[in-house]
Computed example of a mutant assay.
Amino acid sequence: MITRKKANICLPQTLPNELIEEILLRLPVKSLLRFKCVCKSWLSLISNPQFAKLHFDVAKTTQLLLRSCLGSKIDVIDIEAPLHGDSMKLVLNIPSSSTTYKRKSMVNLVGSCRGLILLTTILPYSNLVNFMIWNPSTGFSKQFNKPFNNTIICGIGYNSSIDGIVVVAIVISRPTSIIEISSTEVHCFSSRTNSWSYIEVPFTYQLLGFEFGNGLFLNGALHWLVRSNDLSLKIIAFDVMERKLSEIPLSHDLTVRLQTYIYHLKVIKGYLCLWYVGSESLKAELWTMKEYKVQESWTNSFIFSNIYPIQSFYPIYFTKNGEILGYGRHHTLLKVNEQGELLDHSKVRRFINEHSILNYCMYTESLLSLPEDYEKSSKDE
């Protein structure tokens, strides 16, 4: 008969603090919020703003957010999961406000930066625009407003020099007479100072449409596709640190093509991209600026010829396994391969009709708040 002897090994009751931190840094935000209740040391660690910054850099979980046209609902889509499964079931409620989200108010999901969402609402019968910075993972939100007499394009960015969030609103106005000297107003809200600043540049642009009004943040600048006064297409970039507005050159081939084509500006895999489809063609192309602001670096990355109908497919994101997530007609989400062959699809819910605009942004989960709110909380403690 074999008897077992007790091993004379003394196991530590807890893991080293450094190892615990490394493990927690790789967990999703939802788990970390629950783990705050484990003990005081975990609460202190997870609540630390430095931990939040490290977590954002390490454990990136990217999702697609879709705003419904029927009220203050946002669908959260797991871009790596099958579109017809549970990935379509999570719904967020936009934080309510007595002055903002009334039935006749249209909420615009502008974009995201460092785990913070920017929402705008134009109040009914008013020129007042309400802005909301919101972290849907933690529930943090901050609201502010400003009146604008003309149409604006806007976006949210991050100024690394001051560790602060910046909201940019560019006024798109038209001259009232031929002799009038036109200019463009750029208004910047800094979360650090909790105030607006204003600059003016001596040229004007025209808005292409509602779907082009939301800025794309890349390389410290917000980007929009607009039309200049000579009706040519331009990519404009506003550097949130230098507070300068500039134009990004298109290649000659793109300039010629975009005169008669359906087009969309994207940020895909960390590059500025242009997607366009021929109005009478069954072919679509994705052009990528391989070197930022270098005109000669525009490259034809993908040619799609098998997607049907090609005219209504617009890419959103490249998944980890090489699938291309996009949307098509009748508010359908699609996944295709690099040859344009359909792999998966699903209908988006709760839209009024097939002609309503699909309002979406890519969102990276985070524990981050506005840096100055962290500092205020630390002082209060």
Score class of each variant (00 low, 15 high):
123 L>D: 00
206 Q>Y: 10
326 G>R: 03
363 Y>M: 00
157 G>W: 00
271 Y>G: 05
80 E>I: 01
172 I>P: 08
329 R>N: 06
76 V>P: 04
187 H>V: 15
86 D>L: 14
50 Q>G: 13
354 E>R: 02
361 C>K: 02
362 M>Y: 10
53 K>N: 07
32 L>T: 04
102 K>Y: 13
257 R>Q: 09
273 C>D: 00
367 L>W: 07
120 T>R: 09
259 Q>S: 11
26 R>N: 14
194 N>H: 01
320 K>T: 11
380 D>M: 15
167 V>F: 03
147 P>S: 14
225 L>H: 11
83 L>I: 05
368 L>V: 04
107 V>D: 12
375 E>T: 10
73 K>G: 01
365 E>F: 08
52 A>D: 08
310 I>D: 10
295 Q>F: 10
224 W>N: 12
126 S>E: 02
77 I>V: 05
188 C>Y: 08
46 I>T: 08
260 T>L: 04
195 S>R: 01
321 N>L: 11
341 E>D: 04
341 E>T: 10
211 E>T: 00
296 E>S: 11
214 N>R: 04
251 S>L: 12
120 T>W: 04
116 L>W: 12
367 L>C: 04
201 V>W: 10
249 P>N: 03
241 M>S: 15
114 R>H: 15
99 T>S: 14
153 I>L: 02
101 Y>H: 07
27 L>P: 02
299 T>S: 12
225 L>S: 02
152 I>T: 09
357 I>Y: 06
246 S>R: 14
92 L>W: 05
84 H>I: 15
345 H>N: 12
313 F>T: 00
155 G>M: 13
20 I>N: 14
97 S>F: 01
364 T>E: 09
114 R>I: 13
202 P>E: 03
320 K>C: 05
194 N>E: 03
244 K>V: 15
67 R>Y: 06
150 N>M: 12
274 L>G: 00
271 Y>D: 05
338 E>P: 01
215 G>D: 11
148 F>H: 11
375 E>W: 07
77 I>T: 02
253 D>S: 06
360 Y>W: 04
299 T>C: 07
342 L>P: 06
112 S>P: 11
288 T>Q: 13
46 I>G: 05
144 F>V: 09
126 S>Q: 05
359 N>M: 13
363 Y>W: 05
301 S>D: 01
71 G>N: 05
155 G>I: 03
355 H>M: 06
362 M>P: 05
25 L>T: 03
268 I>Y: 13
177 S>D: 03
325 L>D: 06
372 E>R: 00
173 S>V: 13
61 T>A: 09
190 S>G: 15
74 I>K: 09
150 N>E: 15
31 S>E: 01
295 Q>G: 03
39 C>E: 13
39 C>V: 07
22 E>K: 14
351 F>W: 04
233 L>C: 12
35 F>P: 09
90 L>F: 15
148 F>C: 13
52 A>I: 12
93 N>Y: 06
115 G>F: 04
278 G>Q: 04
277 V>Q: 08
119 L>P: 00
28 P>L: 01
138 T>V: 07
45 L>C: 06
220 G>E: 06
212 F>E: 07
348 V>M: 14
327 Y>G: 00
160 S>M: 00
248 I>N: 01
42 W>R: 07
67 R>M: 10
359 N>L: 05
3 T>I: 01
146 K>V: 06
355 H>T: 06
31 S>C: 09
248 I>Y: 10
378 S>W: 12
14 T>I: 14
53 K>E: 04
299 T>I: 10
230 D>K: 03
94 I>T: 02
207 L>S: 13
60 K>W: 01
